[in-house]
Design a protein around this nucleic acid. Sequence first.
DNA 1: GTCTATACACAGATAGAC
DNA 2: GTCTATCTGTGTATAGAC
Lengths: 238, 238
Amino acid sequence: MKYSSFKKRITDCAKDFCDEDFLENRKNIRIKKESTVAKNLGIIFDATLKISNNKGFQAMTMRDLSAEAGLSMGALYSYFSGKEDLLKMLQSQRRSVTKKILEEYIAREADIADKLRTAIRIHLYLSEAMQPWFYFSYMETKNISGPEQAKAIESELYTERIFAKLLSDGEKSGIFLRRNHQLTASIIKAMLQDWYLKRWKYAKRNISVESYANYLISIIENFCLSAGKTGKPQKSEE
Amino acid sequence: MKYSSFKKRITDCAKDFCDEDFLENRKNIRIKKESTVAKNLGIIFDATLKISNNKGFQAMTMRDLSAEAGLSMGALYSYFSGKEDLLKMLQSQRRSVTKKILEEYIAREADIADKLRTAIRIHLYLSEAMQPWFYFSYMETKNISGPEQAKAIESELYTERIFAKLLSDGEKSGIFLRRNHQLTASIIKAMLQDWYLKRWKYAKRNISVESYANYLISIIENFCLSAGKTGKPQKSEE
DNA sequence: GTCTATACACAGATAGAC
DNA sequence: GTCTATCTGTGTATAGAC
């Protein structure tokens, strides 16, 4: 699957505001009209990501945000009760979109080796489509208050478990070698994360997200696939 | 080589204050006596890393630092001219130690495959011995003023080039396969970084730095070594 | 719903005594 | 060399007009 067709499918979803964690916060918002909330929250979230990824969330002032979003300080505070609240809403909204899409695409595949390839590929495509948020989430959630940090860690472990499960199922079916699946899974995560953490590097070198995906898949299959079961051949470089 | 013997060798070095970039800043320090400077700067650096890795460098106040270091605000300001200056000194001191040691150990090996193994292993050992600083440097330097950020990027690319060069030399000698060496090198970096960025995870799972090193080396050698040249066998899991 | 003006707290930094 | 006391800027958040 090519990135371009994935992206088309995704851009609508990405602005869904129907997550339950999000609705929890909805009642703190003074604005009544649903369409105004959706429009302005979108603008506020994008501005937050833009500024934070430049100078850090903690360093972003409300005046910065006000200028970038084109709303006065007063207006901003009718969409959230404070900086911490803003972070919570942003995180829960994006996290639920990510999870939904990842699960959807993996479920479509029947074969285990395909599921693993798809999991790697779709995770990369997701982080490509929402790079500013993935970067933000990685860099900022470490320093945040207790419950938010716990959710970030849980989210890290959640995708890791998906990979570990696939590797372990694959071993049972004889298509993958016996390895330390948990460790392999966590190394896959590290490689996936590098894509959105070092985007400047890959962009400068003209590495496309497709070719990065193919490269990762071939590294992992070299390491995990049983001999003879080379699966569909994957190009190792572009 | 075991981590424990490496660590013994390193702990002395790690407090060297003889880097040229550092001496540049030395003249801004009002304190005359060299031994006092070394002692208190050590305390200040450690306190900075401890607080910053908890709440972020930008969120660390001088009062926090004063309390943690056991020095008054006034005293602190006789060791640096401001927060930014403190960061510059810390970065240049640690960066020079890291570079020196990494080069030293790679140079000791004659065989290319051994050089690659050593580069991976020693980088991991270094980041284990100085985990707080590696973590700090990764998370904080992105948001900092121009020249400091440029040095951080240069440092990332510097180690990457070491790996890429080894892979490419190895290809010429016929021991490594023809791959996209630059891309492989950047993926090696990603895997190395995961060790110090997710230390909580590996600690909880009782993965030792030695076994992580062995695992990485086996992934890379599976991918890069020419058939038949399996080199010294590496354990893939512990 | 959005604005301007302002309160109030807290940060970085320094002066000058000891 | 280290301390306490204090200045000044800047950040978050709110009140109340439009």
